[in-house]
C-alpha cells in the first residue's frame, strides 16, 4: 500500500508564468477517495485549488479529462492508480495549445470533427416510421459510434502534430467512417470525395498510436483503413478493384 503519491504536474498560467514548469506534489493516500487517477487529482486540487484541468462524469463517458499520463494519453477517470507506479507525471495532451496547466484549447480538434459533416444525411422513410436497419447493418456502427471525442487519439498522432489544420485526425476520420458505413446515410460518395487529397485522410501513416491509446478500446486506424478501401474501390470501380485483389 502506497502511503503517499508523488505527482509531477505541468503548470502554466500565461497570465503569470513566462514559461511552463513541472510542479512536484505529495498527496497522502488516505485523502484519495477511490482507485482512479482522477480521485488523486481531486485530492490534490483540494490542497491547491489553482491546479487546472477539466473533468466531469468520472466514469469514462463524457471525455473531459484526457491528459498525458506518464507519457501516454488517457483519461484520468479510467486510469487505475495501481497501474502507474510510484511517480506520476502529468502533462497536457500533446500538440494542443495550452490554456492553463492540463487544460488545452480543443477548438481545432472540434473543427476537424465538424469538417466531416458529422450528421446523418438521409431521406426519412415515406411511411413516417423508422428507417429499417437489420441487426447486421446496425452492427457496422459498433466500434465507431462509441467515440467520446476525448482527443486522446488525435493528440497521440504524429501526423496530427504536424498538420492539425489540414489532417482530419483519427477521431474525425473514425466519425467519417461511422457515417459512411451507416446503411441509412445517402452521402457515401460525397463523404469519400471530401476526404481525397494529400492531407485530410492520406496524412495517416498507419502509426497506430490512436488505437493503442483509445480509452474506449476503439480502433481509428482500422476505421481509416476501411475508408481508404472504399476510396480505392470508388476510384477503380468495383470490378477492377476486385480483379486487382485476386
Amino acid at each position: 500500500m502506497i502511503n503517499n503519491y508523488t505527482l509531477s504536474i505541468y503548470r502554466y498560467n500565461p497570465e503569470t508564468d513566462k514559461k511552463p514548469r513541472m510542479q512536484s506534489l505529495e498527496v497522502d493516500s488516505s485523502e484519495v477517495k477511490g482507485i482512479m487517477l482522477l480521485d488523486l487529482l481531486k485530492a490534490a486540487k483540494d490542497h491547491d485549488p489553482t491546479i487546472t484541468f477539466r473533468f466531469s462524469c468520472g466514469a469514462g463517458i463524457c471525455g473531459s479529462d484526457g491528459m498525458n499520463i506518464n507519457g501516454r494519453n488517457g483519461l484520468a477517470c479510467m486510469t487505475q492508480l495501481k497501474t502507474l507506479g510510484d511517480k506520476i507525471i502529468l502533462r497536457p495532451l500533446p500538440g494542443m495549445p495550452v490554456i492553463r496547466d492540463l487544460l488545452v484549447d480543443m477548438n481545432l480538434f472540434y473543427r476537424q470533427y465538424h469538417s466531416i459533416k458529422p450528421y446523418l444525411q438521409a431521406e426519412p422513410p415515406k411511411d413516417g416510421k423508422e428507417h429499417k436497419q437489420s441487426i447486421s447493418q446496425r452492427r457496422q456502427l459498433d466500434g465507431l459510434y462509441e467515440c467520446i471525442l476525448c482527443a486522446c487519439c488525435s493528440t497521440a498522432c504524429p501526423s496530427w502534430w504536424w498538420n492539425p489544420d489540414k489532417f482530419v485526425g483519427p477521431a474525425g476520420l473514425l466519425w467519417a467512417c461511422r457515417f459512411i458505413v451507416d446503411s441509412r446515410d445517402m452521402k457515401e460518395s460525397e463523404r469519400l470525395e471530401d476526404l481525397e487529397g494529400l492531407y485530410r485522410l492520406y496524412r495517416c501513416r498507419g502509426i497506430m498510436n490512436c488505437a493503442s491509446v483509445c480509452p474506449k478500446g476503439l480502433n481509428p486506424s482500422a476505421a481509416i483503413a476501411s475508408v481508404r478501401e472504399r476510396m480505392l474501390k470508388k476510384a477503380l470501380g468495383k470490378q477492377s478493384y476486385d480483379e486487382a485483389n485476386q
Binding site: L120, A122, G128, K129, E130, H131, S134, I135, R138, D182
Partner: peptide, 17 residues
C-alpha cells in the same frame, strides 16, 4: 422516430425496427 431520422444508432430487432 424523429431521433431515429436524426441518426441515433438505436439497437434493432430482426425485422429492422
Amino acid at each position: 422516430i424523429e431521433l431515429e431520422h436524426m441518426g441515433l444508432p438505436f439497437s434493432r430487432n430482426e425485422d429492422g425496427t
